[in-house]
Nucleic acid binder design. Structure first.
Lengths: 328, 328
DNA sequence: ATCTTGACTGAAAACGATTGCAATCATGAC
DNA sequence: GTCATGATTGCAATCGTTTTCAGTCAAGAT
């Protein structure tokens, strides 16, 4: 039914080895190469990648494991990873874990069965803590969330610094009662919280914070409750783009003016943030570059398996918009 | 180095065939199955999927080819496809074509080399027109954009009807000078335009339209020009979520009131559309269901290769918000 | 006791490529 | 003319599974 390399060899009047070499790297005379190409065209031959991978022991596959591709941060990263991968002639297997430990374990096992070349992974805190890369059999680059220091390759944002950037900005704009909303499953939330607390401390201010599950709905609900408190903040640091959606919905529902009654500054310069309300002040993460860098680190690790784990820390850029206008 | 099925067999004191059967479907006595499972655990065996695929001739892989995963419509569809696939024990290969014909051809060839089980594909108009599914060797389900009638399995929105829904709504709200902004590369844009024109004709109104490349920037620029025209519309039908972003930016730049000076109604109930300006009136596509249905159709086609091509047409839901309030 | 039957089990042949090794061939040196 | 050399080429082994086919064995039918 389907045409094999043997058929091409027959059609070209050469051996299968020659066809393989003509299609790949091996030394082949021009005349035979031409014959082979003609035979490939004539027969409509398509190499069987499973067979090639089995024999060559190179899967040319990288795994990308994120919590949810619908999170624009991961969407952008995934696009960067895929661009880089296809440029290198590799394919990408994408997995969504929903921050679920079982799914993380499941997909890591799948990666082993695929004999992937490497994996780019945004793990939960728990998995990052217990992850033993050497036992896995392929290199791993963590993104967005770093594990225990010095154990893994990683490319992350300087989360503490970025959070401090937001705090300093809000303080400079005249806000004093600054609250924070952070995710409770990843190291990212914890780091941003730490930077948030440290920065407020420097200013001699309190640092009230709430921790929520990683979804817009959870953020909306948490903030809805908070806004009913007597001591509600007059400015808010929001730990990611999903939370920003929830925050804005809660604010809309409570009919609060932004920034008049509640200033907002958050993470992720998602497409819509310049359009919501007065425009949102945000930290822009170099999303595409994060993906590109992760891919590059993976390749370097493959070239040099022995080198010490490296952590690339990228810095966020503060984009100021109406939601943090000076306090009136 | 890596442990093979042969090593497991040795450790368990059985033949490789028995190990294979114990791990798969074959009939194996309970006692041996237990032994095999113990040996698998002891050795840390992971089956090699390339070898399995080569021998069994089942790749358990489906291809998903879209224009850009960063388009939230495709993001949502991809999540649905992946959920369904992993539930069935299949892998997904995701490709971004950027509406580029060469990339489309390239990735279709890649799918052949992967010997994929099937492909879910959002093609450009040109590729859809020339696509010969039978020559490909695997079933294809088109999404979002249908090809020539009766030739392919497809799951699409009733685009003309949805566009008409928007037009009827705007007319009912009192708008008369209604313009349209449509994409120029896909059949989707064309169908929505057709529904737009037909609906306006029913109302005895003109149907001024602009066609632009599929990006927010292109929409922004086109509308920027249009808004300077003397005969600019007082309401706008916008053909997709990306364009909505561009439209809102142009409107903001021109400092027009929405809906006072320009009412807006568009496609795609993206996460942010309830938060921008007065809230955007949109057609909500059943995005997750589109992905799920495409996957289901693929499975049915595999069960029954001979059946005639089917086109599933889903209907959009009108979500009315502030951007189309009755004309004052 | 013998024969059937059915349920397991193992040996060995695929699956479709790549690659180590040996053979071939033309070329230029002697 | 012979031989060494280097560049191609082909043969056959191999990658790690699944699956066919032919046993083996115990239990029940006769």
């Amino acid at each position: 039914m389907t045409v094999r390399i043997k058929d091409v060899a027959q059609a070209a009047g050469v051996s299968v080895a020659t066809v393989s070499r003509a299609l790949g790297e091996g030394p082949v005379s021009d005349s035979l190469r031409k014959k082979v190409e003609a035979a490939v065209a004539a027969t409509g031959y398509r190499p069987n990648l499973s067979a090639r991978r089995l024999r060559s022991q190179h899967s040319q596959t990288i795994g990308l494991i994120v919590s949810d591709i619908r999170n624009p941060f991961f969407t952008a990263v995934s696009r960067a990873v895929e661009d880089a991968a296809y440029q290198l002639g590799m394919r990408v297997i994408l997995c969504n874990t929903d921050e679920n430990l079982d799914k993380e374990a499941l997909y890591l096992r799948l990666m082993q069965e695929e004999r992937v070349t490497g994996v780019i992974f945004a793990p939960t805190r728990e998995t990052a803590a217990t992850l033993d890369v050497d036992a896995l059999g392929f290199p791993v680059v963590l993104i967005d969330r770093a594990g225990p220091p010095g154990r893994h390759d990683a490319v992350v944002l300087d989360n503490a610094e970025a959070a401090a950037l937001l705090v300093d900005h809000l303080v400079a704009q005249g806000y004093r009662r600054i609250g924070g909303l952070f995710g409770n499953t990843s190291t990212t939330g914890a780091e941003r919280h730490a930077g948030f607390v440290a920065a407020l401390q420097r200013h001699g201010l309190e640092a009230p914070a709430r921790f929520v599950a990683p979804s817009a709905a959870a953020a909306e609900q948490a903030l809805g409750l908070w806004l009913r408190d007597a001591d509600r903040p007059d400015a808010l640091v929001v730990s990611n783009g999903l939370f920003l959606l929830g925050v804005l919905r809660a604010v809309k529902h409570a009919e609060l003016a932004v920034p008049g009654e509640l200033a907002i500054a958050g993470f992720d310069n998602d497409d819509w943030t310049d359009l919501a309300g007065p425009g949102l002040t945000v930290i822009e993460q170099p999303v595409y570059e994060i993906g590109r860098t992760a891919m590059a680190m993976l390749m370097e690790r493959l070239d040099n398996p022995a080198q010490l784990p490296r952590k690339v820390v990228l810095t966020g850029r503060l984009v100021t918009r109406g939601s943090s206008r000076p306090r009136g």
